[in-house]
Computed example of a mutant assay.
Amino acid sequence: MPALTFELIKKDPGSAARLGSLTTTHGRIETPIFMPVGTQATVKAMTPEELVEVGSQIILANTYHLYLRPGHELIGRLGGLHRFMHWNGPILTDSGGFQVFSLGELRKISEEGVKFRSHIDGSTHFISPEVSIAIQEALGSDIAMVFDECPPYPAEYSYVKTSLELTTRWARRCKEAHRREDQALFGIVQGGMHPELRRESALQLQEIGFDGYALGGLSVGEEKGLMHEMMQACSGILPEDRPRYIMGIGAPEDLIEGIHAGFDMFDCVMPTRNARNGALFTGTGRINIKSAVFAEDTGPIDPECGCYVCRNYSRAYLRHLYRSQEILASRLNTWHNLHFYLKLMEEARGAIAQGRFVEFRREFYAKRGLTPLV
Rank of each mutant, 00 (worst) to 15 (best):
R83K: 15
R83T: 14
R83Y: 09
F84H: 14
M85G: 05
W87H: 07
G89F: 07
G89V: 05
P90K: 03
P90A: 11
P90D: 07
P90R: 03
P90W: 02
I91C: 09
L92M: 14
L92E: 09
T93R: 09
T93W: 14
S95L: 09
S95M: 08
G96C: 13
G97L: 10
F98Q: 08
F98V: 05
Q99M: 05
Q99S: 04
V100E: 00
S102E: 08
S102W: 10
L103Y: 14
G104A: 15
E105H: 14
K108E: 12
K108M: 09
K108A: 10
E111T: 03
E112L: 03
G113N: 02
G113V: 05
V114P: 00
K115N: 00
K115Y: 00
K115F: 00
F116Q: 00
R117L: 08
S118A: 01
S118P: 09
H119A: 02
D121Y: 04
G122W: 01
G122R: 01
G122I: 01
G122F: 02
H125P: 03
H125E: 10
H125K: 07
H125Q: 10
F126M: 15
F126W: 06
I127P: 11
S128M: 08
S128K: 10
S128W: 12
P129M: 13
P129Y: 09
P129N: 11
P129R: 13
E130I: 07
E130L: 03
E130G: 08
V131I: 15
V131Q: 14
S132P: 10
S132R: 05
S132C: 14
S132I: 09
I133S: 06
I133T: 14
I135R: 12
Q136W: 12
E137M: 13
L139G: 06
L139V: 15
L139E: 13
L139Y: 12
L139W: 14
L139C: 11
G140I: 09
S141K: 08
I143T: 11
A144V: 11
M145H: 09
M145I: 12
F147A: 12
C150L: 13
P151A: 07
P151I: 11
P152A: 13
P152V: 07
Y153P: 11
Y153H: 15
Y153Q: 14
P154D: 11
A155I: 09
E156N: 08
Y157T: 07
S158M: 07
Y159G: 02
Y159F: 15
T162A: 12
S163Y: 03
S163E: 09
S163A: 14
S163Q: 08
S163W: 04
L164G: 13
L164R: 04
L164F: 07
E165M: 07
E165T: 05
E165V: 07
E165Y: 03
L166G: 04
T167M: 09
T167D: 04
T168C: 08
R169F: 02
W170P: 01
A171I: 00
A171G: 03
A171K: 00
A171M: 00
A171F: 04
R172F: 01
R173A: 04
R173W: 02
C174Y: 00
C174T: 00
C174M: 04
K175T: 01
E176I: 02
A177V: 02
H178Y: 00
H178A: 12
H178N: 08
R179S: 01
R180M: 03
D182V: 05
D182R: 06
F186C: 05
F186E: 05
V189G: 02
V189F: 11
V189C: 07
Q190N: 00
